[in-house]
Amino acid sequence: MSRYYVNKFLYTVDSDPKWVAAYKADPRGTIDRWEEEVGQWLTPSEKTSWLSFTEEEREALATHNYVWLFEHGAHFFLNLTLFIALYDQEYTARSGPLSFQREMADKLSPWVGKEYPSVAL
């Protein structure tokens, strides 16, 4: 389990329109390419040698499974903004403003009244 690495994925993808578009079009392929080009790098010239995803994390990211990510402590803000970037436009066109955000809330509704999974690392 590498919550940090999952958050790094969400953070760096969300902050670059090229990666947002790639992750929307081809999530599984984008994860592999991201690891090579972004995930393993601390700075443009310094490599971090030890970070990796678990199989479950990779699968959750490959399937845009924000419920799993919430339930395993991905940071709530990153988990919200990136999936808004991926889905808000098409949901708004189909069902009106904030319909994606409300569906997300609905899918997470079993957590109402419970202590949420911690985002602490």
């Binding site: 709530f76 904030l98 955000q101 409300r102 997300m104 809330a105 109402v112």
Partner: peptide, 8 residues
């Protein structure tokens, strides 16, 4: 934000 009580 990003939880079940958002945008109520």
């Amino acid at each position: 934000l990003g939880g079940p009580r958002q945008f109520g």
